[in-house]
Simulated assay, not measured.
Amino acid sequence: MASDLSIGILGAGGIAERAMVEPSRDVDGVRVDAIGARDPARARAFAERLDLPKHGDYETILADPDIDLVYLALPPITHAEWAVRALQAGKHVLCEKPLSVNGTTAAAIADAAAETGRRAFVGFHYRLHGFTQRLLEVIASGALGDVDRVDIDFSIPHFVVKPGNIRLDGDLGGGAVMDVGCYAVDLIRAAWGEPVVESAAAVLYDDDPRIDLQTDAVLRLGSGAPARVRASFIGNDQGAMSLRVTGSAADLVATSVIVPQWGATLRVTAGDDVLVDENAADGENSYARQLEHVAAVLADGSPSILDAARGVGTMRVVDDIYRVAGLEPR
């Protein structure tokens, strides 16, 4: 691998700019060199607007011998195909979350990485932000005592996900659990280990009943405590990205968990006593931290919390939520 990590993007949507091109400019040792789209003209326009040196269709990017890592900014239904093809072409892969549409296709990505000797990652960028690391540190510290209950509400305001959005398309692997619920599952697994899905109920989209506009689920932690999760596209005007943990010794409330740079707060109280009252650091960007992390583990070969092999477990829990809610896994 060259001294700089050369990145090619598949998919010319807005997330490619926000999650990869913009943060790459603030990270030493990485550069975005190429953009690929189904429509080469769209890739060219993207490249010209953002001053990227190379553009073309997907195959052009995979065939480029100078590209070290491919970032998939594509609908989840396509991740397995293009991740496997990129790995077989000798590229490392970073998939925009979720890793894939279900546990089976997610496992296909992890298996291909193992077979090719390349690395595959899932883009749970929030995990690399200092705020999230502090949040998990507090949870692990024992300061809360025994966990009695966990409440996670990841709700997008009702006016954001509109008709025509790919998140409302069953053919593309849409749905609220797929979009924001996967974050909740990842967070639960990071903090408390593997949960079991106990119950789930979904509000369905009239125009495509395969799509959950909102799902409420209860996941049982290994300790026996319930974790109540809401994933929603029909939240109120403010929406929510909140985590609440009720413990025997103290209670925790965290906000803006999915995107800590949007003003995340962490507060731990024991009765009238405030044990922790902290805000996310100004100017820290989770996508930049993700890029730094991926470059570092590729350089030294160390394990990653974003490794696809770990991400398979998250998709298997997502599958279980859909099954218990009476829906087919994606």
Score class of each variant (00 low, 15 high):
1 M>L: 12
4 D>Q: 15
5 L>F: 08
7 I>Q: 12
9 I>P: 07
9 I>K: 07
14 G>P: 00
17 E>W: 10
21 V>S: 11
22 E>Y: 03
25 R>T: 04
29 G>V: 09
29 G>D: 13
31 R>C: 05
32 V>M: 08
34 A>V: 03
36 G>T: 04
36 G>C: 01
37 A>N: 15
40 P>V: 12
40 P>L: 11
46 F>D: 01
48 E>M: 11
48 E>L: 12
49 R>V: 05
49 R>T: 13
55 H>E: 11
56 G>T: 12
57 D>C: 02
58 Y>M: 12
59 E>K: 12
61 I>A: 04
61 I>M: 05
61 I>Y: 09
65 P>M: 08
68 D>F: 01
71 Y>R: 00
74 L>W: 07
77 I>V: 15
77 I>Q: 14
87 L>I: 02
89 A>R: 06
92 H>C: 00
93 V>Y: 01
93 V>E: 04
95 C>E: 06
96 E>Y: 06
97 K>H: 03
101 V>N: 10
105 T>M: 02
106 A>D: 10
107 A>G: 12
108 A>I: 00
110 A>S: 13
112 A>Y: 06
114 A>C: 03
120 A>S: 09
125 H>C: 02
128 L>H: 14
128 L>T: 13
131 F>Q: 13
133 Q>N: 11
135 L>N: 07
137 E>G: 10
140 A>Y: 02
143 A>R: 15
143 A>Y: 02
144 L>I: 07
145 G>T: 07
145 G>K: 13
146 D>T: 12
147 V>S: 08
148 D>G: 09
148 D>T: 01
154 F>H: 10
156 I>M: 09
166 I>E: 15
167 R>N: 08
168 L>N: 12
169 D>W: 03
170 G>K: 06
174 G>Y: 12
176 A>I: 01
177 V>P: 00
178 M>C: 03
186 D>E: 15
191 A>Q: 06
195 P>H: 10
199 S>P: 00
199 S>F: 01
206 D>W: 05
207 D>M: 08
209 P>F: 04
211 I>M: 15
212 D>T: 04
224 G>C: 06
226 P>Q: 11
230 R>A: 02
232 S>F: 01
232 S>N: 07
235 G>H: 09
236 N>L: 05
237 D>S: 12
239 G>C: 03
240 A>V: 07
241 M>N: 15
241 M>A: 13
245 V>L: 10
246 T>K: 05
247 G>S: 10
247 G>C: 08
252 L>N: 08
261 Q>P: 00
262 W>R: 13
262 W>D: 14
263 G>H: 11
264 A>M: 06
267 R>D: 12
268 V>Y: 03
268 V>G: 01
273 D>P: 00
274 V>E: 05
275 L>G: 07
276 V>E: 06
277 D>F: 02
277 D>A: 11
279 N>S: 15
282 D>P: 03
286 S>P: 00
290 Q>L: 15
295 A>F: 10
296 A>I: 12
300 D>L: 04
301 G>N: 03
308 A>Y: 05
309 A>F: 00
314 T>Y: 02
317 V>G: 04
317 V>E: 03
325 A>T: 05
327 L>V: 01
328 E>V: 06
330 R>P: 00
330 R>H: 13
